[in-house]
């Protein structure tokens, strides 16, 4: 990454983290570094070790081995002062349903030495109209906003968000994302785990993909997977009506060549240059590549009438 980030302090530092449950090696030598002020997303399939890792960082679980430092301390021995600098938004929440939004936010604010003003927090998460509503009667999205309110009311330096927008409608997600971005602008470092690739793409400064208890890729959302995985796919329909696709680092050059050798006429029906989405790259990284990606890598500029071209055509129909 850029040099300014290198110079900033790390908020989370993990080296060689391991955790085993029975015969399952849930975390298998994981390394991670999260810098101050960034939104860092951890992606990975279920069972990849995301939750175990995050819960070790939060001080909920013990580790078998490895070095872990969160806000300068080992989470396994983090005391109250350390906890007061963290905010944790857990995955599912259905607790304390009889208390109202305002009661809960005020109550939790009292746990911290330098908490935020509860009223400001209620406004920030957009629950002003629901301040006197019991948690029981909040919608899923409102409940999640309350969770975030309780997570940030202590003015944390580091906030953990575990799958925060599961079950949101698109509009609720968008406004939730804006809230998370505003927290970063306030200087909060955020560790986000999510299943949604678009969420990571929209929010994260950097993304780590975890698979089998290890980090298999780590970069900005735009660069994840490296140049090879980022090669665009050119699709076109030849003069005989067959469809073709080719993966290339230089799509313009390929189009020029095709036009020159007559594979494409002036009309160029069905000509497309597709850049792999974060989702395509992610699926390839975790070893379950999307079928379209698999077929395009296999297909090359096939000669007219070849079986491959025909099968592609059939698939297209």
């Amino acid at each position: 990454m850029d040099t300014t980030r290198r110079e900033t302090r790390s908020v989370i530092d993990v080296r060689g983290l391991r955790k085993r449950y029975g015969t399952k090696q849930a975390v298998d030598g994981l390394d991670l570094r999260v810098d101050q002020g960034e939104i860092f997303a951890v992606l990975g399939p279920n069972g990849a070790g995301k939750t175990t890792t995050v819960e070790i960082l939060e001080g909920f679980r013990d580790r078998d081995s490895g070095e872990v430092t969160v806000l300068g301390q080992d989470p396994a021995s983090g005391g109250r002062a350390w906890r007061s600098r963290l905010g944790v938004v857990l995955q599912d929440s259905r607790d304390q349903v009889e208390l109202t939004v305002r009661e809960l936010v005020r109550h939790f604010a009292g746990f911290y030495p330098a908490g935020r003003d509860p009223e400001e927090v209620i406004d920030a998460v957009g629950l002003r109209e629901k301040e006197s509503t019991r948690a029981r009667h909040l919608s899923g999205g409102q409940r999640r906003r309350l969770d975030v309110a309780l997570g940030i009311v202590g003015r944390p330096e580091l906030l953990f968000l575990d799958e925060p927008t599961t079950g949101f409608d698109p509009q609720a997600r968008r406004s939730f994302w804006e809230l998370v971005r505003s927290l970063r602008e306030d200087g909060t470092t955020i560790l986000l785990t999510t299943h949604y690739l678009d969420e990571a793409a929209f929010l994260a400064d950097r993304v780590a993909v975890v698979r089998d208890g290890r980090v298999v890729a780590l970069d900005t959302p735009d660069a994840l997977g490296g140049p090879q995985a980022r090669r665009p796919v050119v699709r076109w329909t030849g003069p005989d009506g067959t469809t073709h696709a080719e993966r290339t680092t230089h799509p313009e050059r390929l189009v020029a060549e095709l036009t020159a050798n007559g594979a494409l006429d002036g009309e160029a029906p069905g000509l497309q240059v597709e850049h792999p989405s974060l989702e395509d790259v992610y699926l390839e990284l975790i070893g379950t590549a999307a079928p379209t990606t698999a077929s395009t890598t296999a297909t090359t500029t096939a000669p007219e009438g070849s079986t491959q071209g025909r099968s592609t055509e059939e698939v297209a129909r």
Partner: peptide, 13 residues
């Protein structure tokens, strides 16, 4: 229901 876990994540003794 997760009340205890949530409280555990705060500096509440």
């Amino acid at each position: 229901d997760g009340t205890l876990k949530r409280l555990r994540a705060t500096p509440l003794p």
